[in-house]
Design a protein around this nucleic acid. Structure first.
Length: 293
DNA sequence: CCGCGGGCCTGAGAGC
DNA sequence: TGCTCTCAGGCCCGCG
């Protein structure tokens, strides 16, 4: 499910519940998600304070008073829900706020802030790990990530240099978390459409012979930053599973220009094309064959 | 070494 | 209604 905008939306929702608060009670309601929970998961968290709640790419990172970091990933279908004590006395506001847990509510944090944080993940592609802060560089999952797409380090020169030797499509390159970290299938499709670049174009065409960016590379970088910013403002995209932590839906799906719009007219002004769906490296790609070159 | 396809899971929706 | 099939915001691993 969640790409960078959805994870950032979740982070902002969890922050007031978790940052500066202590884990009073932790419950792991099954032995594993995608991976087994870390040894003594509950004991290692209970009593610790969350000193900061950050995000790297699609990973949520809760800094702990012990010097460790609780790394959380939502996989395809993970979501967090926050119930504040005060909400419990406001009947009817949240349908699953009756205190009963659902089938796929796998982890529950009772925080000293008075918030109950529940992690739900039907497909269980998500996971939680505890890593020593100093050893984050040794964690390949994190250490190998490319730059944050919304950070200054992600620019046309960097993207061109990273793509110049790639023997793959620009679509596949942008999904590669080692090139740029945080994009997924939706936002790659949307950014390529905004930049009028065909997803089938070779990634190395983003660079000239010297490895410098060509003109369209800068347009692509701008398109990526803009679409991610717009999506964050909208609380992410809710297709199936994504919810904001208060249970509300994100609404960026209403702003999709191509994703899941096969057959619809291309929204580019004056373009006569219709959106097509193809499959690239096993994933659906939506694009306009007329205005994306 | 690199790129691709399969697999991990469950559930929703389409088609019969 | 109910079955079967396909597909889904991600990522790791093994194969060629």
């Amino acid at each position: 499910m969640p790409e960078l905008p959805e994870v950032e939306t979740v982070r902002r929702g969890l922050q007031p519940a978790m940052e500066g608060a202590r884990f009073d009670k932790v419950e792991a309601r099954r032995p594993d998600l995608r991976f087994p929970f870390p040894e003594n998961f509950v004991k290692r968290l209970e009593g610790q304070t969350v000193t900061g709640l950050g995000r790297r790419a699609k990973y949520l990172m809760a800094d702990l008073s012990s010097g460790e970091v609780l790394v959380m990933h939502l996989g395809m279908s993970g979501s967090f829900h926050v119930l504040h004590d005060a909400d419990a006395s406001t009947p009817g506001r949240f349908h699953h706020d009756r205190g009963k847990l659902g089938n796929h509510d796998h982890v529950v944090f009772r925080m000293s802030s008075g918030a109950t944080v529940t992690f739900n993940d039907p497909r269980r592609f998500g996971f939680m790990k505890i890593i020593e802060r100093g050893k984050m560089d040794e964690e390949p999952m994190i250490a190998l990530l490319g730059p944050e797409p919304l950070g200054n380090a992600f620019d046309a020169a960097m993207l061109a240099a990273a793509c110049r030797d790639k023997k793959t499509s620009v679509k596949a390159a942008l999904l590669d978390q080692q090139i740029v970290a945080g994009l997924g299938n939706i936002y790659v499709c949307e950014a390529l459409h905004r930049a009028h670049i065909s997803p089938k174009r070779m990634a190395r065409a983003l660079a000239n012979r010297k490895g410098e960016p060509v003109e369209r590379t800068a347009l692509l970088v701008d398109a990526i930053k803009l679409v991610l910013q717009d999506a964050i403002k909208a609380g992410g995209s809710s297709l199936r599973d994504h919810r904001q932590t208060d249970g509300d839906l994100g609404y960026f799906q209403h702003s999709f220009r191509v994703y899941d719009r096969e057959g619809e007219p291309c929204p580019t002004p004056k373009c006569t094309g219709a959106i097509r769906r193809i499959v690239q490296t096993g994933r659906s790609t939506f694009y306009c064959p007329v205005c994306q070159k």
